[in-house]
């Protein structure tokens, strides 16, 4: 056995720095600039739009944890996003929970759902894994359509925004904006931390060479399940937060189209990069916003972006910038 065989695999398109070095200055600077920009954003654009972008940014980042860093393509992430939004909306409306508890409820539900579906799905690999997750998500969708508390085609409407911690009213869009900013920004920072932890390194090893990771003694399935649950949990956090913003949980959030959209955001921004999925999310949500009047053309355009992205632009926007700068982003 040669010594170089035990070395970590050579860095791929998006090399990850060793966990011990802490956050590189470049990343710190980007996060700081981003935070300052976001703090000023609600005074420049419509706050609800900005909140929507941030929710989807967290959703895409959570999805990217699974696809970009775990190497697992789930085609059913709408189940956790939508499922959590239903539970959070129900908790806020029927049980009278405060916003933070409602969001927590939704997120916990997504984690449980992720644990069940993940445990079943990781029994198949590759392309089958994608189909299995899609099928289970469709099951969740049918459940949302038929269950007594979900309101069928109408969804759960006019969910009260309530008072944060029972103290701060969130009726005001600006107040809600900073709550959403804290949740989503904190979520993305947490995901960043996961990727750059020893756990993240093991994930990378499994993604690059699963048999070798097994031979090194790692219980690969346990790592896969954990990353699946983490990804589902943060997708749920995003969905639960979105239901508070729009005061609505609807079938759209649980539909397979939503699962496809988060794949598209991640692909467009750059899978396996830290900043790519949020960039992709911002672009797609903005596009949907401006093209909303064109109806089904939005679907066509998204399809075209998918096709072009897969054929010509597999690195994604941030992936290309990362290659130019020769730095992981």
């Amino acid at each position: 056995m040669s010594s170089e065989k035990t070395d970590p695999p050579a860095a791929g398109a998006a090399p990850i720095l060793p966990p011990s070095t802490g956050m590189p200055t470049l990343h710190k600077a980007i996060f700081l600039v981003l935070l300052l920009f976001l703090a000023g954003l609600p005074f420049m654009v419509y706050p609800v739009f900005a909140m929507k972008v941030m929710c989807f940014a967290l959703f895409a980042a959570a999805f990217n944890l699974l696809l970009g860093f775990g190497g697992l393509l789930s085609f059913g992430h709408a189940a956790y996003f939508g499922g959590a939004s239903y539970i959070a909306a129900h908790a806020a409306k029927e049980w009278g929970f405060t916003p933070e508890l409602s969001v927590l409820c939704g997120t916990a539900a997504a984690a449980v759902l992720g644990l069940i579906i993940g445990a079943l799905s990781i029994r198949r690999q590759g392309i089958y894994f994608a189909m299995v997750t899609l099928a289970f998500a469709q099951m969740v969708y049918f459940f949302a359509l038929q269950a007594p508390f979900t309101g069928g085609e109408d969804g759960i409407q006019s969910v009260p925004r309530g008072d944060l911690f029972g103290l701060i009213p969130l009726e005001n869009n600006i107040a809600l904006y900073f709550f959403v900013l804290a949740v989503t920004f904190g979520g993305i920072l947490f995901l960043y931390r996961i990727v750059h932890s020893p756990f993240g390194q093991v994930l990378k090893a499994i993604r690059e060479n699963e048999p070798r990771a097994i031979s090194l003694g790692y219980n690969v399935n346990r790592y896969k399940l954990l990353v699946f649950v983490l990804s589902a949990t943060f997708a749920g956090l995003a969905g639960a937060t979105k239901s508070q913003v729009f005061q609505l949980a609807s079938l759209t959030d649980a539909h397979w189209m939503m699962s496809g959209e988060v794949v598209l955001m991640t692909l467009l921004g750059g899978m396996g990069t830290i900043f790519g999925p949020p960039v992709g999310a911002a672009l797609i949500v903005t596009m949907q916003n401006y093209l909303a009047t064109f109806g089904a053309w939005v679907t066509v355009i998204q399809g075209v972006i998918f096709v072009i992205g897969v054929l010509l632009f597999r690195e994604g926007i941030v992936g290309v910038i990362s290659r130019w700068l020769k730095r992981p982003l």
């Binding site: 393509l73 085609f75 392309i127 994608a130 496809g260 794949v263 692909l267 679907t299 066509v300 998204q302 399809g303 075209v304 972006i305 998918f306 096709v307 992205g309 897969v310 054929l311």
Partner: peptide, 10 residues
């Protein structure tokens, strides 16, 4: 899979 998904959308 991703390519054919995009084609399906179109």
């Amino acid at each position: 899979l991703l390519l054919t998904f995009g084609l399906a959308l179109i």
